[in-house]
Structure formats: structure tokens, C-alpha cells
Amino acid sequence: MQSRRIKIRNREIGEGCPCYIIAEMSANHAGDFHRAVEIIHAAKEAGADCIKIQTYTPDTMTINCDKKYFHINGGTWKGENLYGLYQKANTPWEWHGRLKEEAEKAGIDFFSTPFDKSAVDFLEELGVEFYKIASFEIVDIPLIKYIASKRKPIIMSTGMATLGEIEEAVEIIKAQGNSDFCLLKCSSAYPAVPEQMNLKTITHLKDTFNVPVGLSDHSMGSVSAIMAVAWEQALLKNIFV
């Protein structure tokens, strides 16, 4: 039977274990390497266990096209051209090694979300010890298969995915002989609205797939994250609220 715990480096994560907190750097460095380093240390000081980045280039994500289909029509990035947005938001690959070293010096785990096979190969060369699969990539079965074949722990977000799509991704990971993975409940809205996040889905995912399940949180503030942890603790102690 699949374990409800996984091991990342020297930490067990899952049922009965302390909460493992990942700080997402994403594009918050705003193209400034020194700011990226500051974010790593701020995450450590705030109590995070891990810092995560994303590994892609504009050319691995989209094409340089200005037609209307390549423009964002609403939300946080309304009016942006996709290629230009990814160009501004990506973390340069030449930074990755130095950021990993900085995280190690700070005493915080470091990993990344790859968006294509070339990014996986690059992260393998860096010696990254575990992987994130983004919600948008949960239907990219060839990419999931390739990541799983590295036999390293995987944290996979499930935003927008149907139960069937999650099941297919889970089965692909298992088929590569990799049972060291967990799922994240995720609402793919930026920012997400706490009232619409349906945190009880965490329990459903855990019961359905019998793996550790956490929260990928895009909401403002800390209420959603606190409630997710509180709900989990209530279940473990048979306290129903």
C-alpha cells in the first residue's frame, strides 16, 4: 500500500509529521539576482523549510507571437503578451547554481519546477534532489513520465485538474517505479479567494490516492494555510468542526 509519508532529504513529510513549508520565489526577484538571494534568506528567517524556483525560458514555454491568442485578456497579467511575460518572469538558468549554493549556506532546501525535458536535464546536472510538477503541467504526461523516471521525490499540484487527470498522472509516476510523491490541493486563481478554495478536498485527495496531500496557496495572507493545517490536525485527532 502507498505510504502517507515521503522523505525529502532528511525530512519525512506526511501524516503525523511537522508541516513542511515551501516558499515560492517565482518571479518575485524581478530580474535582480541580489534580490533573489535576499528572498532565500528572508524565507529562511520566516521559518520556511524550502525555497522553490521555476526553470524555463520564454522559448520553452511559448512562441514569440503578437496575435490576440498570445495575449492575456484578464486577471493579474491583463494585456501582457505571453512571450514578453515569460521573458520578464523567468529565473535565468545561469543563476540556478548560485542560488542553490546560497540556499545550502542558509540551511534551507532548494528545488524547482521544470516545464520541459531540457529543464529536467539541466536540474539533474545541478544535482537537484526533488521536483515540483505545476498544476498546468499535470496533463503533460510525457514530462511527468520523464521526471518520475529520475526516481526522485515529486510534489505535484492539482489545480484545474479533474479527478481522472490526477489519476492518470499518479499512475504514470507509479509506472516508472516511483512511489515517493505527494499531491497539493491547489486553486489556480491569482490571487485565490479563501472562500472558494474548498480545503476539504485535501481529505478527499488523501483518501482517494492514499498519499501525503498539502496545499498550494495563492491566496492573500495566511488564513488559508493555517486553516488547511488546522483541518488536518482536527482529522488526525478525530475532532470535527
Score class of each variant (00 low, 15 high):
Arg5Gly: 01
Arg5Lys: 15
Ile6Ser: 01
Ile8Arg: 04
Glu12Asp: 08
Ile13Lys: 05
Tyr20Leu: 02
Ile21Leu: 12
Ala23Met: 02
Ala27Gln: 11
His29Tyr: 03
His29Lys: 08
Gly31Asp: 06
Phe33Pro: 00
His34Ala: 12
Ala36Arg: 01
Val37Met: 10
Ile39Tyr: 03
Ala43Lys: 01
Ala43Ile: 03
Ala46Tyr: 06
Ala48Val: 07
Asp49Gly: 12
Cys50Glu: 13
Cys50Pro: 00
Ile51Tyr: 06
Lys52Tyr: 02
Pro58Gly: 06
Cys65Asp: 15
Tyr69Phe: 05
His71Gln: 09
Ile72Ala: 01
Gly74Gln: 10
Thr76Tyr: 11
Thr76Trp: 00
Gly79Ala: 04
Gly79Gln: 07
Glu80Ile: 00
Leu82Gly: 00
Gln87Lys: 15
Ala89Met: 15
Pro92Arg: 09
Trp93His: 14
Trp93Thr: 00
Gly97Lys: 13
Arg98Asn: 12
Leu99Ser: 06
Ala106Asp: 04
Ala106Tyr: 05
Ile108Glu: 08
Ile108Lys: 07
Ile108Pro: 02
Asp109Asn: 12
Phe110Pro: 01
Ala119Gln: 05
Ala119Thr: 07
Phe122Leu: 14
Leu123Ser: 03
Leu123Gly: 01
Glu124Ala: 02
Gly127Tyr: 10
Tyr131Trp: 15
Tyr131Met: 06
Ile138Thr: 07
Leu143Ser: 08
Lys145Gly: 00
Tyr146Ile: 02
Ala148Glu: 04
Ser149Trp: 01
Arg151Leu: 14
Pro153Asp: 05
Ile155Gln: 01
Glu165Ile: 07
Ile166Gly: 09
Ile166Met: 09
Glu168Asn: 14
Glu168Leu: 14
Glu168Gly: 01
Ala169Ser: 14
Ile172Val: 15
Tyr190Leu: 12
Glu195His: 13
Glu195Met: 11
Asn198Thr: 08
Leu199Pro: 04
Thr201Leu: 14
Thr203Met: 10
Thr203Trp: 09
Thr203Leu: 13
Lys206Leu: 04
Asn210Tyr: 11
Ser216Glu: 09
Asp217Thr: 06
Asp217Leu: 09
Gly221Met: 08
Met227Asp: 12
Leu235Gly: 05
Asn238Lys: 14
Ile239Leu: 15
